[in-house]
Simulated assay, not measured.
Amino acid sequence: MSLSKMTVLIKDLPDEQASVAMGRAIAAGLQPPFTLYLTGELGAGKTTLSRGIIQALGHNGAVKSPTYTLVEPYELPGIEVFHFDLYRVADPEELEFMGIRDYFNNNSLCLVEWPDRGFGMLPEADLHLDLSYKGLQRQIKIEAKSAAGQRILDNLK
């Protein structure tokens, strides 16, 4: 599928429950290998959305922000989920030292918050989720970047 046919979906997220529900809806069609980029200002809901995705994939516990650890792994039946938060990365070269490329494999689903901090070290996203403030609510812009991402986007419409 050519990138010119890729589409964008914009939805309002009135509260935390709507963000979690959107994460669950996105998770419904995810299959590894898959890379999700999550962008937006601090507090825009990237981790909340990630929680919806990770819990919908079968994780029963808490989903915490990996701000200090850089990555939180979740081993789920038949899939490895890696949740990255690159906010504290000062130089993309730091990711090379942590073996970043090893996380992106054929059995992994990688959710990457602040992907711009890893520029040049990360694979392209299949789906880009951009969260923004809309008054007291949030808004999500979902952009397909691959055929796999487009299938997820089509399922959300």
Rank of each mutant, 00 (worst) to 15 (best):
Q137I: 11
T69L: 10
P123N: 03
T48A: 13
R138D: 12
D102I: 05
L49V: 01
M6S: 12
K145Q: 15
R24I: 07
W114T: 00
V89N: 00
P32Q: 02
L156Q: 00
P77W: 05
L131K: 03
P73L: 11
P32G: 04
K157N: 13
Y87W: 08
E16H: 10
E96L: 15
I79R: 08
A56I: 03
F82M: 09
S19D: 07
L131G: 12
S132H: 06
E143H: 11
G29P: 12
V20R: 07
A21Y: 09
L122C: 14
G149Q: 02
T39M: 11
G52N: 00
K5L: 14
R151Y: 13
M22Y: 10
M1L: 10
V89H: 11
N60M: 10
V8T: 14
E75F: 14
L42N: 00
G99C: 01
K141P: 13
I26R: 03
V20M: 13
T69K: 01
N107D: 15
L127N: 04
S132G: 15
A18E: 09
N155C: 08
G58L: 06
Q150G: 01
Q55E: 05
V20K: 09
L131F: 11
E113N: 08
V63R: 05
V8G: 03
F97K: 01
G61A: 06
R51W: 11
P66H: 05
T7C: 11
L156R: 08
G149T: 02
T67E: 01
